[in-house]
């Protein structure tokens, strides 16, 4: 509650919601009204079909984010909203990277993939699609290395998060 930290940090919020119409719009509106940009957003059904899980990565001051968490939590269809910035949650994402590589560049590109434990999920004479999963830093690094070649397209799922051990996400 204190204005302890006004520097911008990335926060990964996990929002557990009732699977009702309009809930995404309501959550998004809280961020928009406070001038926050959502870096990534993943919505998926949970084990119980009546509920969905949203994972939202957003950048901003901690003080402002506290407010957002409170206001999201207060929405009628939100069960709970948790910030995973400081606990040791598992945070992963997946990227598909389409790289235009000629036959003689391919070996080097595949070496990069191997290092990052990435897979090629499509391969043609002139291009390949690389699928890499892991923490955001790893996905960033892999994408960075592949920029040496001609990256034609990049799609990232955005972060998904899960609390470790006995903690609830």
């Amino acid at each position: 509650m204190n204005m302890k930290n006004n520097t911008e940090t990335i926060h990964t919020l996990s929002v557990y919601v009732a699977n009702k119409p309009g809930v995404l719009a309501r959550v998004a509106q809280v961020f928009a009204r406070r001038g926050y940009n959502i870096d990534s957003l993943v919505v998926s059904p949970s084990m119980d079909g009546r509920y969905s899980r949203m994972t939202i990565a957003a950048k901003g001051s901690l003080a402002g984010l506290d407010q957002i968490i409170q206001q999201v939590s207060k929405l009628v269809d939100v069960i709970h909203c948790t910030d995973h910035a400081f606990d040791s949650a598992v945070v992963k994402e997946l990227a598909l990277i389409k790289v235009a590589v000629s036959t003689n560049e391919r070996t080097e590109a595949l070496q990069v993939c191997e290092h990052f434990d990435a897979k090629t999920v499509d391969l043609t004479e002139t291009s390949m699609i690389v699928m890499v999963t892991g923490g955001s830093e790893k996905v960033d690094a892999c994408t960075g290395m592949l920029k040496k070649f001609n990256v034609v397209e990049l799609v990232r799922t955005g972060k998904v998060v899960m609390a470790r051990g006995g903690d609830t996400t």
Binding site: M1, A63, Q70
Partner: peptide, 15 residues
């Protein structure tokens, strides 16, 4: 009754 009001305008010592 609404905790989202806490600290919204001014920080307080007790809520």
């Amino acid at each position: 009754i609404d905790p989202s009001e806490f600290g919204r305008m001014i920080p307080c010592h007790h809520y």
